[in-house]
């Protein structure tokens, strides 16, 4: 039933899908980390409107489906005159959606840093931004590595959303191969293998990292 010939017959499609899945994941990974850090800092500033803005951002994107976020960029923005391709809107949607989760993870990490430390830093003359940058964030990031790496794993899996907006990723090509060959199980099995090729090392690395952090404290 499982016939690996399919993987070779459609190697071009599968490889391009794998490549695009990897690109989308890497771009969204970097983007969501940066965006998430900014939002986390916003969430904790002493300036109230900014804090609200950060909260609204996190609550909004954590409570609506990823597919909807992607549709907002793919179909909603064109209604306002901005046209983004399936790959671009899928990757942006993925970035924005994941960044809300990362922001929350980072915030939890920042809160875990004793308040006394930042008070001490502030009273020794550092500005708020300097305190964040040099005292709080470096410690917090250590605490939040496990939850964040978990989000990255989710991100790779969630990148399959590109398949729905014609983003030429692995899921998209699995679907195309299925449509052309009428071999659903086979076409999906090959895609599953390729996804596992990306995700299993990632989750293994996550666990290793977690263990190492737990040991060093």
């Amino acid at each position: 039933m499982i016939d690996f010939a399919l993987l070779f017959d459609y190697s071009e499609e599968y490889m391009e899908g794998l490549r695009n899945t990897l690109y989308a994941s890497l771009i969204a990974l970097a983007g969501s980390f940066m965006l998430g850090t900014i939002v986390a800092v916003l969430r904790m500033t002493p300036v109230r409107p900014l804090r609200w803005l950060g909260r609204a951002y996190v609550e909004f994107f954590r409570n609506i489906p990823l597919l909807l976020v992607v549709y907002i960029f793919f179909l909603g923005l064109p209604a306002l005159g901005i046209i983004l391709s399936g790959f671009v809107s899928g990757t942006i949607g993925l970035t924005v959606y994941t960044s809300a989760y990362i922001a929350e993870a980072i915030r939890a990490g920042i809160m875990a840093v004793p308040a006394g430390q930042s008070e001490a830093a502030r009273s020794s003359g550092l500005t708020y931004i300097q305190t964040m940058r040099h005292v709080v964030l470096p410690q917090a990031i250590k605490i939040v590595v496990p939850p964040i790496s978990n989000q990255f794993l989710n991100l790779v899996k969630n990148s399959s959303i590109l398949g729905v907006v014609s983003g030429f990723d692995l899921m998209y090509y699995a679907d195309i191969v299925n449509s052309e060959t009428y071999q659903t199980v086979n076409a999906l099995f090959m895609a599953a293998l390729l996804y596992l090729l990306l995700t299993i090392p990632l989750s293994y690395a996550t666990r290793l990292l977690e263990k190492r952090l737990a040991r060093t404290g």
Partner: peptide, 14 residues
Amino acid sequence: ENYQEAFTALRAGQ
């Protein structure tokens, strides 16, 4: 996925 989506994408300028 289907014709409606393809047509929506066309009208969205995709």
